[in-house]
């Protein structure tokens, strides 16, 4: 009796709110078809053998092969190396930029200028940088003017990683700096006034007031950039000659990352099952690192900012 009554009230409630369900339907359909269902398909594909004959369950074979696939190992290593290099070179740059932008005259004009590269696709950015970095490009010419011999940036297995990282910083520093700047502007100026009265130096103010107060933003930006770096595809694909083998094998080996490897295997060679397994491994790695980051830094506290 009680159950049927509750069901009745539930039904009445649902009927009353029927327009809300109708409003949710389009978004739910898109997400189901292009987020959840692909995720499900990836899981199914990653444990199947896929061929013209059909699909056959093969268990964890693909994951076992991943463990012993030297090309995947190298792609994974490259991905981590690039991400680490991006952190070392690119973590403090936007913070420093924001601190300087906060002080400088014509602040608004400058922050607009720094944001400009972030507006454009990697095809556009890559097109321009492929020339900048070419043997006779602007960078080598500029180095030549001060007497430094040019470098074959894009065909050197040594230089390709730093070049990709510097490009990435150039592309995204303005965006990250804007986020920090917004956080800086939300700090109550009277805190600085009080510190000044107590005789704190500029450096002390920066270390003891500014940095602790923007920490939540630092965490958010760090996580966002880490995710971006781990799953980068467009930049690598374009800078390595668009998959046409434009670069020598040595450079391709040095710049191949997880996503480009998955693309080459899945789309290039048609091994969609294996590529699905690669995608899922990357998904899990990103998930673990994101959760670990949030836990270590008590991300929830930052949500209020």
């Amino acid at each position: 009796m009680v159950l049927s009554q509750r069901l009745q009230t539930l039904g009445a409630e649902i009927y009353k709110q029927r327009m809300r369900y109708l409003f949710l339907l389009p978004a739910l359909t898109v997400f189901t078809l292009f987020k959840f269902y692909p995720m499900y398909r990836a899981i199914v594909f990653s444990v199947s053998k896929y061929s013209f004959a059909g699909i056959k369950f093969v268990g964890l074979t693909h994951y076992q092969r991943l463990l012993t696939d030297p090309d995947f190992g190298r792609a994974l290593l490259n991905t981590f190396e690039l991400a680490l290099l991006s952190i070392v070179m690119g973590f403090w740059t936007p913070i420093l930029l924001a601190l300087l932008l906060h002080e400088v005259a014509f602040k608004n004009a400058f922050r607009t200028v720094y944001y400009i590269p972030h507006l454009f696709s990697w095809v556009v950015i890559g097109g321009i940088w492929l020339w900048l970095l070419s043997p006779n490009g602007l960078i080598n010419s500029a180095l030549g003017l001060v007497g430094i011999k040019g470098v074959y940036w894009l065909t050197s297995a040594f230089w390709i990683k730093p070049v990709l990282v510097v490009m990435g910083i150039w592309h995204g520093v303005g965006y990250s700096a804007l986020l920090y700047l917004a956080s800086l502007q939300s700090i109550d100026p009277q805190i600085y006034e009080a510190a000044k009265i107590d005789g704190a130096t500029k450096l002390q103010q920066a270390m003891r007031i500014t940095l602790p107060l923007i920490t939540p933003t630092v965490v958010v930006v760090f996580i966002l950039n880490m995710i971006k770096n781990l799953q980068s595809f467009d930049q690598i694909y374009i800078m390595s000659g668009g998959g046409s083998g434009g670069l020598g094998g040595e450079v391709k080996r040095a710049s191949d990352v997880v996503m480009t490897y998955a693309y080459d295997k899945g789309i290039g060679l048609g091994r969609l099952d294996y590529a699905s397994a690669i995608s899922l491994v990357l998904f899990v790695i990103i998930l673990i690192l994101t959760l670990a980051n949030m836990k270590m830094t008590k991300y929830d506290e930052g949500r209020r900012f």
């Binding site: 539930l10 978004a27 292009f34 594909f45 799953q231 595809f233 996503m259 789309i267 969609l272 995608s279």
Partner: peptide, 30 residues
Amino acid sequence: HFPGSRFFMVAFLSTLMISFQVIAIPTYIV
């Protein structure tokens, strides 16, 4: 709040974890 509203919200927010790159290959299959 209505029946299922929390579920929908969580489902929508969980899509933020699934970026396009990661499901690019499966999206191609779909």
